[in-house]
Design a protein around this nucleic acid. Structure first.
Lengths: 139, 139
DNA sequence: TAAAAACTATAAAGTTACTATAAGGTCAAG
DNA sequence: CTTGACCTTATAGTAACTTTATAGTTTTTA
C-alpha cells in the first residue's frame, strides 16, 4: 500500500503520515525501487491507533507513551489508567472553564441588540469592564 | 511607565507586551533617551482590552477586529454582535465535543480496574476499537 | 506516443500565542 | 566598582500539523 491509500483509509493527509513518521510514531516503512513508501497491515494498525488516540484528545507524546505500553505489555497497567484518569480530569476542567466562559459571553452578548452603532455598543464597553485577574489562556 | 510596571499592572510578562506590539495590537510607545519603552494611560487601556479579549477566549486577530471597531465607532455594531455570536457558537460546540469525549473516555476508563497487566488491559483494546470517522482535532 | 493529471519525494517555512534563551546595555544601591 | 534589577534586540522553541517549493514518477487521456 502506498501513502495515499493509507491516508485515504484513515481520512488523514499524506503529510500527516510523514509527520508522524518523523516524530517516531510510525515504524519506518519499506521503500519500493522508486523510493515510494510501502505500507503493510502493521503500519495501518499503528496509524489507526494514533488516530484513535488523537480522536480522544490525547497528545502525540501521550500517544507515544501508550504505544510503549503496547510494546511492553508485561507491566502493570496502572500507568495506563493513570494517564487516562489525568486526561479525563483535564477535559473536565476544560469543560467547566468553557461553561463559565459561555455564561460570561452570553451575558455580554445579550446586553446589545445589534441595532445601534459601535459608538453606543455595550459589548465593547462590557469587554472593557472585565477584570481579568490574570489572563487565563488555553481555555 | 516602563514595560515592567505595565506588565505587573496587568499580570502578564514583558515579552508578551513586546509580542503584542510586534503584532500591531499596541501602538508604538515613545522611547526615553536610553531606548526604554515609555507607556501612558492610553497604552494601558489598549493593553487591558487585549487582555480582556484573551480572557474571554478571543484570538488575537478577532481582538484586532474589535479594536478596529473601537477606532471607527460610527459603523453599525451588528458586526461586533456577529463576531461574539460566532465565538459563542464555537465555544458551545467545543463544550459538546468535550462532553461527548468525556463520556467516551469514562466508558473506556471504567472497563479496567488497573489491577491487571498491560497485556490484559481493556483500555488499550478499547482505544483500538474506536472508529474515528475522521480524526477530529482541536477538540 | 506525448502531453497532462495525479501521485510521490524532500526540505523548509508558516500557523497561534506565546515562552525561553542569549548577549548585551542601563541604572541605583551598597 | 560591582552587584542586581531592570531594559534592549534577535533568535529559537513549543504542538500538531499545513503550506509551499521544487522535483521525480506513474497513470491517464487525447
Amino acid at each position: 500500500m502506498r501513502i495515499g491509500q493509507l491516508a485515504d483509509l484513515l481520512g488523514i493527509q499524506t503529510q500527516t503520515i510523514r509527520f508522524y513518521e518523523k516524530k517516531g510514531l510510525l515504524p519506518l516503512p519499506a521503500r519500493s525501487y522508486n523510493g515510494y513508501r510501502v505500507y503493510t497491515e502493521k503500519h495501518y494498525k499503528r496509524l489507526k491507533f494514533v488516530c484513535s488516540c488523537r480522536a480522544i484528545g490525547l497528545s502525540l507524546s501521550e500517544t507515544r507513551r501508550l504505544q510503549d505500553y503496547q510494546d511492553n505489555p508485561h507491566q502493570p497497567c496502572s500507568a495506563v489508567n493513570t494517564l487516562i484518569d489525568e486526561h479525563i480530569m483535564h477535559i473536565r476542567s476544560q469543560i467547566t472553564s468553557l461553561q463559565d466562559l459561555e455564561k460570561q459571553l452570553t451575558s455580554i452578548r445579550t446586553s446589545c441588540t445589534g441595532q445601534s452603532k459601535v459608538i453606543a455598543c455595550t459589548i465593547l464597553n462590557k469587554i472593557d469592564e472585565i477584570e481579568s485577574v490574570s489572563c487565563n489562556r488555553d481555555v
